[in-house]
Write a protein that binds this DNA or RNA. Structure first.
Lengths: 340, 340
DNA sequence: CTGTTAGCGCGTTCAG
DNA sequence: CTGAACGCGCTAACAG
């Protein structure tokens, strides 16, 4: 690895001259500058990032912490963040919490060493369940800007980017009702997350407004994962004479559709289904799945933009409690009936 | 951000004493050491990564370059690499080439600044098409270890991790033939990649051995993307009386199934289908898709292990042309018939 | 226009 | 057992 020093020796000038020449300082004469640049190119010189980072106390790296990327929402989100980041000269350090509080804490502790200029995080299930945000606060105490995406929480004052999960859920349920569903249900395998909770609330709000006069809680099936999914869902559908399903996540919706088909019921005639996230699974299932799109790309781009705003202007924490709400979209496909 | 200097002042010792104490040097007395550590904890001290990197000329970061992560193979691969890396104290910098040679080159040029200790790459389509590997060679010239995964090439002498795509393809076609297919076809939307080519060769080899005596080229449909996919595939199936399909990638297989169903044909009775990659799409489609699993998790873990071997022992390039072949797996599901 | 010098934060000889 | 001093590679005063 050629250094500035090597160039200086070859060019018979001092290191500072080289530094200035390479940074196009007006102080340096054009022929000297040209000569230096030629030598630099010759040697394949690239400024050492650690040295620059040390000097500027800024790394041009951001940290991304997500639970995982096997669900398409997160993989899209990550890709959107990285794409925006690289456009602006920032590199992305990607970490997975695997839905574990401990792992998330360790990752964050690690990020306190100044290896990133800021962090975008979507919290783990366990963190949201424990409601323990010490690690995130500690990060902010270290002066590292944080933007929370999708899996956010109210009790921390930092920037947030999310959709209106409550409203999106209402929207979906209203559509089920409008297409003739009398007994729409809500199923979820993410009951412990803020988004899971909001989506459930939205479901209840919609059925209370549009379907029941009383304070009915509706038909809700919540599970932690997919262990007994088939058995539970099967009896749930049977016992409650379900004719519509809103699933809080894509995979649950897809699995539900397969179980419904297996029972010999028709989708959407007997049971209509709507999912969240709108990924490839939704597009390519049969019947294709009506979905709420969370616009992961937009969320990612905005999250990055907000983060860089905090990083570049060194206002430590002005109006930090800004929350950007990205519009959702209901994408109609074959798994729901048409409105007459 | 507390530094070693701050601690030194508070403890009334020199910075070097602090450094030694924090690194558990036997030179430092136990009570001094304890006191220093207490203060460090108090201040929330974390060693500055840029300074350490500069000192050690090693960042404990690796670079991961993949085309994208919307296909499940790459998202699994990335997750596997990161998981192994973090276990060993390495952070992962993730970049997307978006199948573009230019983007890939720029990313790599950027990585020559010493911001990573090594790189794992799966090349872009365009790079494989142009066969221009200057950027990768330049990386190696800079002394940065490189491991290529899945999308590899023969003409570079670096470590490689892949599956036997040729053999896997043969395996799949043999299964189609064994379950009664007389006219199995091969479809691909990745004709320009090495894996796409190998899979096609494997297909041809199998049909020549098992089906035709002569050197028939078989029934091959290659497209660059999904623009006219439906139209092309439709007439391809019609004209050639296809009764089996091996698709070189998961999405093509799924799309093919949907088109076949739309034509009113039965899967697997009229047309059997096998795909590559075995992701969630394969598991949850109806009928579920028989697939070749590339064991992305294994590939990722091995790639990282091999890379770290090169990084830690500073043998620059000993037996660098090692190629690790990971075993594939044929996962039988509903889209193929049973063997009688 | 160019060179000298200091210092970013840390680890590491080498003296004491 | 502890401290002073150097240098990793770079930028930015400050001199000349």
């Amino acid at each position: 690895m050629a250094t500035i020093k090597d160039i200086a020796e070859l060019a018979n000038v001092s290191v500072s001259t080289v530094s200035k020449a390479l940074n196009d300082s007006p102080e340096i004469g054009s022929q000297t500058s040209a000569k230096i640049k030629a030598i630099a190119r010759e040697l394949g010189y690239v400024p050492n990032s650690a040295a620059v980072a040390l000097k500027r106390s800024a790394t041009h790296h951001i940290g991304i912490i997500v639970p995982e990327i096997s669900s398409e929402f997160f993989s899209k989100l990550v890709q959107a963040i990285e794409t925006s980041a690289s456009k602006r000269g920032f590199k992305s350090v990607l970490c997975f919490s695997k839905e574990s509080f401990m792992t998330e804490s360790q990752i964050i502790q690690n990020f306190c060493n100044g290896s990133v200029d800021g962090i975008i995080i979507s919290m783990s299930k366990q963190t949201q369940q424990l409601r323990d945000y010490k690690h995130i606060l500690s990060l902010m105490d270290h002066g590292i800007p944080v933007v929370m995406v999708d899996r956010t929480c109210d009790s921390i004052e930092c920037e947030k980017v999310c959709i209106n999960d409550f409203g999106a859920s209402e929207h979906a349920v209203e559509h089920l009702i409008a297409t003739g569903c009398k007994r729409p249900a809500f199923i979820s395998t993410i009951p412990k997350t803020n988004v899971g909770k909001e989506r459930k609330k939205g479901y209840r709000s919609a059925i209370q407004q549009k379907l029941y006069e009383n304070n009915a809680k509706g038909l809700v099936l919540e599970l932690n994962g997919y262990r007994n999914f088939e058995k539970e869902l099967d009896s749930f559908i049977q016992q409650n004479a379900i004719d519509g399903i809103l699933a809080a996540n894509e995979l649950a919706a897809i699995k539900a559709m397969n179980i419904i088909k297996k029972k010999g019921l028709q989708i959407p005639e007997d049971v209509s289904v709507i999912g969240f996230t709108d990924g490839q699974l939704s597009q390519h299932s049969s019947p294709s799945l009506t979905s709420i799109s969370q616009n992961a790309n937009t969320m990612g781009a905005i999250a990055l933009k907000r983060l860089l705003l905090q990083i570049t202007r060194d206002v430590p924490r002005p109006n930090n409690h800004i929350q950007t709400v990205v519009k959702h979209k209901l994408i109609l496909r074959e798994s729901t009936k048409a409105i007459h």
